[in-house]
Design a protein around this nucleic acid. Structure first.
Lengths: 229, 229, 229, 229
DNA sequence: CATGAATGAGATTTCATTCAT
DNA sequence: TATGAATGAAATCTCATTCAT
């Protein structure tokens, strides 16, 4: 939630909050599109329909604006992940839900995927500074751990697995498809962004993960209902 | 915007070739590290220990230099991939080889991974211009297709699978680990770059892929010999 | 460029006066520290713990604020100088008092010294506009003239002297030490701001002035009592 | 002598040296006139008739340019001071020469006086970084010490004196007149920059210093020939 | 009186690119 | 080929000042 910076700021009017939000939206778009170094403050200001100098008034500098965008983006996905309520479901269902959610989130929030990419280009310089973001990782792996554990106990999952390793694989199967869509599309001369291609990929990713956990079979797909939003 | 091209250098001196190579190496390093927009021509020149103007002499402009770096990077991995000689091996072995190779290549050639990332930030603008790169995709999927096919025919693979989908998954499981190592390390407060972590990940990726193809079981690991280079 | 002036405030509240004072103090500090061009309106406001806009409310603009600070500073030293009551003392005592006072004032009011310095960097632009300041010079030289005259008549001073020339020398011996303390300290690798260094300088300056007037001898120092505050 | 900065620079053409010199001259003028913070890079470039960006090419940034100007200015006056050859003269003559030189130098090189002033506004930030400047102080006080010593031994100077204290007084009597000429002129409503005023001041300063050393008498002035250049 | 938000002009600095040799 | 010098366009950021409440 921490997304304010200016040390001088005391009371924030509703209008000022609106300005900040528009600014963050515009900045997220720009940073996601061209990265931190590629982003132009001018462009962000124009897109947010505000005076360029306001950016400096509200956030101090370009880097701090980027940091605010990054933190907001992380807090959003975490909020949704923890809202999935995986704990109460059947482990297989829960895992399908999680994988499906992850894939859908990537597709619908490409800005987020690209933001992460850029943050890695920056060698994680900003994520390392954000305590809030760093602290969001452990509940995530705990959640995964519990789900896998339950599956193993019920006998539906064949193997125990490191939740971190599993999370990275789920993310890799989903994020990479989005983040590298351009080179992959060019390489295989196939439009990976078509609805049918997305649907196909979604199923494939779920299949891979469940197969790995020992719970997925081709036959099992018959009743597939979990459609994309 | 590339104005000039070196006049189809025929009698290029050995020294000039050396200069070009040093230049491409330095440029690859810089582009991989900070992306196209983040890269500084000055920095590249300094790193290559040449005069900045030489960059313009040899490559015309920054974009063309980037394009040259990208093409060289792709041609290198393709060369190695086709050198794997998967066709003659047992499909399981072949697949283990391919997945292992892909993982190892990512680990050893992080610059390449980052280069791809950046090219995607640029929306594949340069890869689309390069016929050579685009043409390297289809033999790759053909190779994969054959291998899978053989596995299916031998009964060791349980299912048929789209080779493109499979390739993207293999790549995703490997590349994502490298490309997003910084954010993942921060998030899970775990150093993913330790030799033991790399070895663990390598095995995990192979397990996932083979499990999906229906050829991998935990028990099966006992005889694992495929160590990292 | 001063647009507006507070409407000749008559019923100024006590609070407003307090605000003005805090503002002038903060402004004096800032102008003395970094000069007119170096001073930041923001910094002054923050230091005075008031809202920046109040500066404009009270003084119209930055230049007028500077002018007010300058006038207050001059009026303060003149007030003290005329309070010295040199007229009734023995000329030698009077001169020792004046020189000592000038030195002490410089040491204790470095902001004032620096303010003058800056005003000279500005080529006296603001002092020329201030009738009040300009008019304070002539009584000063008259005072000096009388004192020297009395000394000459009593035979304790050996020579007549231009009071303006004398005043400038006294000031030069004192102000320069303070205004150029940083470069001098660096040059001679000696901390000129130590209490003992200050005391030594104070005596030296008195010696120089009295020697010039023909009234000072080294032996004469024995009964020195005029200590620094 | 140390006045080059750019780490990239290897061979300097005569033309480039000329550019650097013009740049330093223009910068000195500007810094002396309005201080470091008041100086405009644009103005300096225009005055030097060069492209503004060349400043960054040659000096890196505004601060480094200022540092180079400061070092050049100090090295110039030191060079002249040590060229006075005070050691071989009669101590009284030597002292008159030194004081006269100091005064004349201030009058003719007001830029230097103002440069020092500004450096003190900056709290000696740059002089402290310059080893070359700092090291020039000790030979100076040694020179003064010797001269005074010789005068004392010959009996023409009545007292021993700290050479640093003496140097500061000489400088104070000279520099202050120049550095504070604007406020002093306004205060005493007298143009202190007239040739006759300068000549008068020059004599006064010499008188004060020699009177202090015990070597000056009003009568003694009769043969004064040491005119201003 | 007082405040937070907003703005326009202009400052420093960066950077790809070209010039001259 | 190779180099140091030079340049124009544009980027980030600063800062006095004004607006709206």
């Amino acid at each position: 939630m921490a997304q304010k910076k200016p040390p001088t700021r005391k009371k924030a009017s509703a209008q000022a909050d609106d300005t900040r939000d528009r600014l963050l939206d515009a900045a997220e778009f720009e940073f996601a599109a061209v990265g931190l170094s590629g982003a132009r403050v001018d462009t962000i200001a124009r897109r947010a329909k505000i005076n360029k100098q306001l950016i400096y008034y509200h956030f101090g500098d370009k880097d701090s604006l980027y940091q605010a965008v990054l933190e907001r983006a992380y807090s959003r996905i975490r909020e949704k992940e923890f809202g999935l309520d995986l704990a109460s479901d059947d482990p297989i269902i829960a895992m399908r839900t999680l994988v499906g959610f992850t894939f859908d989130y990537c597709i619908e929030n490409r800005a987020f995927v690209r933001l992460l990419i850029n943050e890695n280009v920056l060698e994680g310089r900003f994520i390392r500074r954000s305590k809030a973001i760093r602290q969001s990782g452990s509940p995530l792996s705990a959640l995964l751990h519990d789900t896998v554990q339950r599956g193993v106990e019920l006998g539906t999952f064949h193997r125990d697995v490191d939740p971190v390793q599993l999370y990275i694989s789920i993310a890799g199967l989903c994020y990479f498809y989005v983040s590298n869509m351009y080179t992959l599309s060019a390489l295989f001369e196939r439009d990976l962004d078509r609805p049918s291609a997305l649907q196909e990929r979604r199923q494939h990713v779920i299949d891979v993960v469940l197969a790995y956990l020992g719970a997925g079979t081709p036959a099992w797909h018959a009743g597939e209902l979990n459609s994309m939003p």
